[in-house]
Amino acid sequence: MAATTKPKTRTKRPVKKRKKSFFKGKQNKIAWLIGGLGIVAIYIWVFYYFFVGPTGFRWRALYGDPKYPDGYEIHGIDISHYQGNIDWEKLQHAMIEGCPLRFIIIKSTEGASKLDEKFYDNFENARDYGYIRGAYHFWSTRSSAREQAYFFLKKVHLKEGDLPPVLDIEHKPANVSIEEFQTDVLTWLHIVEDKYHVKPIIYTYYKFKQQYLSAPVFDDYPYWIAHYYVDKVEYKGAWKFWQHTDAGQLPGIKGYVDFNIYNGSYYDLKKLAIQR
């Protein structure tokens, strides 16, 4: 047998504990605090930019309960798939401030490829239940104006007695000048106008109209203004429709729905509709 040798035992050296620097610990805490505040600030900015800023006129949480403007008798709503399955029998007898519901404007298309999943059902029911109906196209910054116009015309077939086609425009591409943007909007309007021989209605919110669609050429088009939680419209120009709240509630519709008024008589509203 081979002789065994005892392993050498290593003596453990005492580990020196490093003294914590008071200033370094404090700096770390400050860095963590600044980083946390930075993340919160970014979150708030993203939330505002994507959810509040573009549709600030819709932000119910900032303004509270809806207000109903005085002096108007012609009331209507606008709907989309967000309202789900509507009970039209119940809606038929709905009243707003003691006045019957007269018109319903329905989301039809968005961009160059999206059809609202409830459009055809809502569009047919609106006429069957005796409402003056309309259809709106939601403008997309990701498709050309020409593509969007022809997609709308392909999917939407307005008839005599329907309101003129509506362009819902709430966003401008950041990399496009105001002049180019206005040209694009006019392209959509002209293509659709050539089809129906009526001026389309422009829907947008108060500040967007002032900032991007203030050129005199747009004054030729009926204006549907979105301006919430105010006693009266602050826009000084002419307008036909006013979407005054997104917090309306009616029998037959679950949740909230947009309330609108028409700036005129019922006779005027019918005259605005498409004539053959």
Rank of each mutant, 00 (worst) to 15 (best):
G237E: 07
D258N: 13
W224L: 05
K240V: 01
Y229W: 15
W224P: 02
W239Y: 15
I261G: 00
K254Y: 10
N260W: 01
H244V: 09
G248C: 10
V230M: 03
Y235D: 09
D231G: 02
V230H: 11
Q249S: 14
E234F: 04
A247Y: 08
L250M: 13
F259R: 05
W242T: 05
K254H: 12
V230I: 15
T245H: 07
H244S: 10
A247E: 13
H227E: 15
K232M: 08
Y228K: 07
A226S: 14
H227N: 10
I253F: 10
H244K: 09
F241K: 01
A238R: 15
A247C: 14
N260I: 01
Q243K: 05
G252N: 08
G237P: 09
Q243E: 11
L250R: 03
A226W: 05
H227I: 00
H227D: 09
K236S: 15
I261L: 13
I261E: 01
K232F: 07
V233Y: 03
D258F: 05
G237C: 10
Q243G: 06
I225R: 00
F241G: 00
K232T: 12
L250N: 03
Y256R: 12
G252I: 06
Q249F: 11
H227K: 11
A238K: 15
G252S: 12
Y229E: 10
H227A: 09
E234P: 00
K232H: 13
D246H: 13
Y235H: 12
K254D: 14
